[in-house]
Design a protein around this nucleic acid. Structure first.
Length: 490
RNA sequence: GGGGCUAUCGUCUAGGGGUCAGGACACCGCCCUUUCACGGCGGUAACACGGGUUCAAAUCCCGUUAGCCCUACCA
């Protein structure tokens, strides 16, 4: 009987929530949902100098916008609150647990105090490297001297190091990368707690220590994280054992790179999830695009084949998700594909689904319009690549053109169409069928082609020769306003 | 320097001994068309390099190169 699957996303609040993090979170979320398990959000704020409450808020809001709901973790907007049985979910609020565990290791001789200063360490490192050797703390290099037997000496503030195995391989069995071996002699006695304030005090524990304690106490069964942590795993495994903890399963997901193959950074344009929101992307499109980086869904054992199959719903992703179908190598982020997916998702959504997402991009007057108006407006522009594009395409329905495209005006607003234009003011039946009938009658009477009148109307009504279908355009402007906008051209 | 991970069209990838190396995005062309789009059809384009193993290698092995990660009292 296997335990319920539990995954966690554990960001450190030292900056924006960027898409690499979102992707990792997405994999954790998909895996938990796929297996009917729980998904935890845990804030790793032990880097006091860089962590801020503001960044925590940004993470929570970003996750929420992305639809990555967590079953356990902080409560948005309330630093003191959390949901779930293993809280708190901010590491700085879990110090008592960590200190107790460190004391236990100290008592059992599995960790020891070290009072070497950063300067001393640096000097030793230089000396050892100058001799062409590899510097490792207390790996035979100065065993029996200095700090190795200073663990009885609590008269000075000390950092605390974990005693690592000195021989053999540490093997990491990874669900994505496979089995990897790390020679024990390549690792050293790493610091599990920083130097305390006072002699004998245990300082703030470090990342690699807290993760092990938290993942165990929060009953995490699958540690899914970025593959920059693969190298940390052989440090953590001996600690799991020292603490008598059961090992979780590990899955290290490949990084996301910029378009040029370099690590994602500001110069690649948008990297924070907030920017994607502002670009008019649907959260579902972001989820899909991010999920499809390094993951190829297999339908009945076969990779997705057609464009149609590429556009997966959340339900399909959840049902299909499998760490075994993940790529081992890093992937470059492709904005073109994201936009394509966004467009496809916009196209297949109902207008009711789209409306809440479109609303923030629309003028205030939008909210007051009727459902019927909203439906027509959305359906008329539902081919757009983004919500921003849709909103832009609908501007004419809310404001008169600020300027007119001169070339287009000259080309289409000819003396020949003006009589027809004048008659358009008389059209009374503003339904699609009604407009079409009236429009065609005017065309026939004046011997014009559809294009002649349609383009002339677009320029007069919208200021430019581009707009939704001409009947939709008329309906969205509305009868009275059509007459008003036409007047100056007659 | 040491340790680790990775390598198929421009990009995301399928394929894991015998394939015309398949698909998607992007790009190009044609068609459709009341504009812009959408849509339809078609096209260009890849196994990093060098050695093995084998009748046969993109696929297995070794090496090289390149990129990335760890090597912090960051996470």
């Amino acid at each position: 009987m296997s335990r319920q699957v539990v995954t966690r996303f554990a960001p450190s609040p030292t900056g924006m929530l960027h898409i690499g993090g979102v992707r990792t979170a997405l994999f954790c979320w998909l895996y938990a949902r796929r297996h009917g398990g729980r998904f935890i959000l845990r804030i790793e704020d032990t880097d006091l100098s860089r962590s801020t409450d503001d960044n925590i808020r940004i993470i929570e809001e970003g996750m929420a916008w992305c639809g990555l709901d967590w079953d356990e973790g902080p409560v948005v907007g309330d630093p003191g609150a959390w949901k779930g049985p293993h809280g708190p979910y901010r590491q700085m609020q879990r110090m008592d647990l960590y200190r107790a565990k460190i004391q236990e290791l100290l008592d059992r001789g599995l960790a020891y105090r070290c009072r070497c200063s950063k300067e001393v360490l640096e000097a030793r490192r230089k000396a050892v490297e100058a001799a062409g050797k590899v510097f490792q703390y207390n790996r035979g290099m100065d065993a029996g001297k200095g700090c190795a037997d200073a663990h009885h000496n609590a008269s000075l503030p000390c950092a605390i190091r974990f005693r690592m195995p000195t021989a053999g391989d540490i093997v990491v069995d990874d669900l994505i990368k496979g089995e990897t071996r790390f020679p024990a002699e390549s690792l050293d006695d790493w610091i599990i707690a920083r130097t305390g304030e006072a002699p004998g005090e245990i300082g703030v524990p470090t990342y690699n220590f807290c993760v092990v304690v938290d993942d165990t106490h929060m009953e995490v069964t699958h540690v899914i994280r970025g593959d920059d942590h693969l190298n940390n795993t052989p440090k953590q495994i001996p600690l799991f054992r020292a603490l008598g903890y059961e090992l979780p399963a590990f899955a290290h997901v490949p990084m996301i790179l910029g378009k040029d193959g370099a690590k994602l950074s500001k110069r690649h344009g948008a990297t924070s999830i907030t920017e994607y929101q502002a670009m008019g992307l649907l959260p579902s499109a972001v989820r899909l695009a991010l999920a499809r980086l390094s993951w190829t869904p297999k339908i009945a054992g076969r990779a997705v084949e057609t464009a149609e199959e590429e556009i997966l719903t959340d339900e399909q992703m959840i049902q299909l998700f499998d760490l075994g179908d993940c790529q081992k190598s890093a992937a470059r982020f492709d904005m073109d594909k994201l936009e394509w997916m966004n467009q496809k998702l916009i196209q297949r959504a109902s207008w009711e689904e789209l409306e809440p997402h479109l609303r923030p991009f629309m003028p205030v007057a939008w909210v007051g319009r009727s459902d019927d108006f909203k439906r027509r407006a959305i359906q008329a522009t539902q081919k757009g690549k983004s919500l921003v594009e849709m909103a832009e395409a609908l501007r004419f329905a809310f404001e008169r053109p600020a300027a007119f495209n001169e070339k287009a005006a000259e080309k289409f607003l000819t003396p020949a169409v003006k009589p027809a234009l004048a008659e358009v003011r008389g059209l009374a039946d503003y339904t699609h069928a009604g407009l079409e009938a009236g429009f065609n009658a005017i065309l026939a009477k004046h011997g014009l082609k559809t294009k002649d009148l349609a383009q002339a109307l677009r320029v007069a009504l919208c200021g430019k020769p581009v707009s939704p279908g001409i009947f939709d355009t008329l309906m969205l402007v509305g009868r009275d306003e059509v007459a008003a906008r036409l007047e100056p051209w007659l």
